[in-house]
Simulated assay, not measured.
Amino acid sequence: MSRVLLVLITLVVFTLLVKLGFWQLSRAEFKQQWQQTLVLREQQAAINYTQLLSLTQTEPTDAEEAALLTGYRLSINATPVKQPLLLLDNQVYQGQVGYLAYQLFEVTPDSPWILVELGFVSAGKDRQILPALTPITAGQYQLTGRVYQKQANPLSDGLHPEMQVDKPIRFQNLAMPALAKLLHHDIAAAVLQPDSVPQYSLPQPWVPIPLSAQKHQGYALQWFTMAAVFLGLMIWVALRQFRHQ
């Protein structure tokens, strides 16, 4: 291996590893700011449905977590919609694999429906058998809680619904436009996680930030360590070539 090629490889790989480390540090800083934003939203008074719909007019992009409505508190009077329950697939809670269960509610006849989280339910060994859940009975309910939005998954962001007669709809992603198209009715872009769910007492996971600032800092340390080890290795290779020559 020529000296020039050795130097080029060393510079390119070392620079890449260091850049990845600094990128993780920038993500850690952003996550710290985002956590502070969530704390402030938790302390604010609950907004109404009209305000929520106004906030959802601007659709956030993948890189704009700060534009997500996650953390706002919402208070509504709503009625269950006569639609199947919905099960978000591939969810994990306290080591158990299962679903997040949802039911659609109507606030006013002319407004979009809103997806209300009922909570986590574990999955059985047979995927063909869905959890036995009973929809919240008809009536008007006052629901107050936190709203959230999921970031789009660049690898798989489709709804991918699985429908059976008289069974909940199992789906893969909170793709609201696709769900609205499937059910032929507008649906709000944010999900409500009520403080208490009528007729239910399922656990309600709250993970607004999938990767914490501490994890990003840990990943940054790993990249910097790899950069240092790689640089040391290449220096050792260069020294050995120099001695042989």
Rank of each mutant, 00 (worst) to 15 (best):
L174D: 03
S122L: 09
L159S: 03
Q91I: 06
E162A: 02
V191E: 14
L174M: 09
I136S: 04
V207R: 03
L159E: 05
D166I: 07
V92Y: 13
Q199P: 03
K150I: 00
L143M: 06
Q91L: 11
L221N: 13
A188T: 01
V92P: 09
Y219C: 05
G119H: 02
Q142K: 09
Q204D: 12
A152G: 08
W113Y: 15
Y102C: 11
S196C: 05
A213R: 02
H216Y: 12
T134V: 10
L104C: 04
S156N: 11
M163R: 08
D157M: 05
A213E: 07
Y200T: 02
Q94L: 08
Q204Y: 08
P109K: 07
H160N: 14
Y148K: 08
V197Q: 06
P161M: 00
Q217L: 01
G119V: 03
G119A: 09
V165S: 10
L118W: 05
A220Q: 12
G145V: 03
L115T: 03
K125I: 10
D157L: 07
E162L: 02
F105P: 13
Q149Y: 06
Q128R: 01
Q94A: 09
Q172S: 15
Q96V: 04
L104T: 02
G139P: 07
I209E: 15
Q222T: 01
M176C: 05
P135N: 02
A123W: 00
K215H: 12
Q222E: 13
L221T: 08
S111M: 07
L183N: 11
Q151F: 08
L159P: 03
L221M: 14
A175N: 15
W206Q: 04
G218K: 07
R127Y: 00
A138T: 06
M163S: 11
P198I: 10
D166E: 12
M163I: 14
D186N: 06
G119Y: 07
V147Y: 11
A188C: 04
S196V: 14
G95E: 14
L143C: 02
S122Q: 12
N153A: 03
F120Q: 01
L118F: 09
F171Q: 07
S196W: 15
P205H: 06
P109T: 00
L183R: 07
T108C: 10
P205D: 13
L182G: 08
A213C: 08
L179K: 01
L118N: 05
I114S: 15
S196N: 11
H184G: 09
P154M: 09
A175P: 06
P112L: 02
R170W: 02
Q94R: 04
F105V: 06
V165W: 09
Q149L: 03
Y219E: 04
D157I: 00
Q204P: 05
A213G: 04
V147M: 13
P131I: 11
V191L: 12
A220W: 13
Q149I: 01
P205Y: 12
